[in-house]
Amino acid sequence: MIQEIIEAKLHQAFQPEYLQVLNESYMHNVPAGSESHFKVVIVSPSFDGRRLIEQHRAVNQVLADELAGRVHALSIHTYTPEQWRQNSQAPDSPMCHGGGHKES
């Protein structure tokens, strides 16, 4: 499963205090059971002192193979441990304009 690969790679690269990888493909106009749209919420001390763009680039670099293949979209929410303690919640993802899934 792509979701498990994403989780393993992010754990190895960032040793996160919190990691959530959600398959949000069902929210898009794709066939049922697809693994093409993901949301990542990751909290890691390795993000301390790094600008948001640098944090996102680091995640994209770790997942470059998946993004070059079957993953069509990746929503990234990175936090330092201090930022996470202040809020501890990532924003909800909006439904795609096409919404739902295609019947296959």
Rank of each mutant, 00 (worst) to 15 (best):
I5D: 07
I5V: 13
I6G: 03
E7V: 05
E7H: 06
A8Q: 15
H11Y: 14
H11D: 10
H11N: 14
H11I: 14
Q12A: 15
Q15H: 08
E17C: 07
L19G: 09
L19K: 07
L22S: 09
N23H: 05
N23D: 08
E24D: 12
S25P: 01
M27W: 02
H28K: 02
N29L: 09
A32G: 02
S34C: 05
S36I: 05
S36A: 13
S36L: 11
F38C: 02
K39V: 00
K39N: 03
V41G: 03
I42W: 03
P45G: 15
S46Q: 10
F47V: 12
G49Y: 07
L52C: 11
L52V: 14
I53H: 08
E54L: 14
Q55N: 14
H56L: 08
R57S: 13
R57L: 01
V59Q: 01
V59S: 01
V59G: 00
N60T: 10
N60W: 09
N60E: 13
Q61M: 05
Q61E: 15
L63H: 07
A64H: 07
A64D: 13
A64V: 08
D65E: 10
E66D: 03
E66F: 03
L67E: 05
G69S: 14
G69K: 03
G69D: 12
R70T: 13
V71C: 00
H72F: 06
H72P: 00
H72W: 03
A73S: 09
L74W: 04
L74I: 01
S75K: 04
S75Q: 12
I76W: 03
H77R: 12
H77P: 11
H77E: 12
Y79C: 08
P81V: 08
E82L: 14
Q83N: 06
W84H: 06
S88I: 11
A90R: 09
P91E: 03
P94N: 08
M95K: 10
M95L: 15
C96V: 05
C96L: 04
H101M: 13
S104A: 11
S104M: 11
